[in-house]
């Protein structure tokens, strides 16, 4: 078997970059989405704006690998340096097209848990918590969840909803009072899932090269259904790979 010319993480980065359209305003968390934002600005979205909840906006990612959003490298050349309220206030203001979050658990309606494993009154594991994820999930026009695809993480029901996806499905999100938003895509190391149908349940949209439908379903904790046009995830193009190598100059993701 020949070696693929890209790593699984590089494929995830490129798939994430494809979720950003030109001129969109997007909330980018740490690590993988920052690199994806860089790839997007060099390919399909040269005029996208990236927001950081610590109080920063950028037109391009910083040069070099960041440890945190507040690293001096991320301050240098920022398009806007301000406070958390000013930058995160664009979310309920309805000005944010997409936001990227991670988590420890996700369920079939795309609700994400990053707070407590087990009962929150007596948790088995205390996770760090929401940070800005609940706000991004609630108030971005769409959220993209990036997670490793394991059966114990892709569960029927999360033990705690930190970041609301489709809640109980159907119109339950708008009934809860969230006027817009919801899951746009879930990008994993095996596949891409998207909500579908009147219940807005997560369906298999595409599976990555080297993986099969059966493999993805085996690693999902609910009975995963297929989108009508379910197909292999498109391979990265030469332009996407080149952009990625320009952004990830240290080869962190290779």
């Amino acid at each position: 078997m020949s070696q693929a010319p890209y790593s699984t993480q590089e494929l995830m980065i490129i798939a994430t970059a494809r979720e950003i359209a030109n001129r969109e305003v997007v909330f980018i968390g740490m690590r993988l989405p920052i690199t994806a934002f860089g790839v997007a600005t060099l390919t399909r979205a040269p005029d996208a704006i990236g927001l950081f909840e610590v109080g920063l906006a950028r037109r391009q990612p910083a040069l070099g690998t960041l440890q945190t959003m507040s690293d001096p490298l991320n301050q240098l050349g920022a398009a806007w340096a301000s406070g958390l309220l000013q930058v995160m206030g664009t979310l309920p203001g309805g000005r944010v097209d997409a936001g990227f979050i991670g988590g420890a658990e996700i369920d079939r309606f795309g609700n994400v848990n990053s707070s407590y494993i087990g009962d929150w009154r007596k948790p088995k594991v205390k996770l760090p918590g929401s940070g800005g994820a609940a706000d991004i999930a609630g108030m971005a026009k769409r959220m993209v969840v990036i997670m490793n695809h394991e059966k114990h993480r892709f569960v029927e029901r999360v033990s705690y909803i930190t970041s609301p996806g489709g809640l109980a499905g159907g119109d339950s999100r708008s009934r809860a009072g969230l006027p817009w938003g919801g899951v746009g895509a879930v990008i994993t190391d095996r596949a891409i899932l998207r909500p579908f149908g009147p219940e807005r349940e997560l369906h298999l949209a595409s599976y990555h090269p080297g993986h099969s439908i059966a493999d993805v379903c085996d690693h999902t904790g609910w009975n995963l259904k297929l989108l009508p046009d379910c197909a292999p995830t498109p391979e990265p193009t030469a332009a996407e790979i080149e952009a990625l190598h320009r952004v990830d100059r240290d080869g962190f993701w290779r």
Binding site: P92, W120, S130, A134, G138, M139, P164, R173, G177, L178
Partner: peptide, 13 residues
């Protein structure tokens, strides 16, 4: 008054 965390279990805990 906010809408941002409606639907989140932060409202419960």
């Amino acid at each position: 008054p906010v809408r941002t965390i409606l639907g989140s279990d932060i409202m419960a805990s």
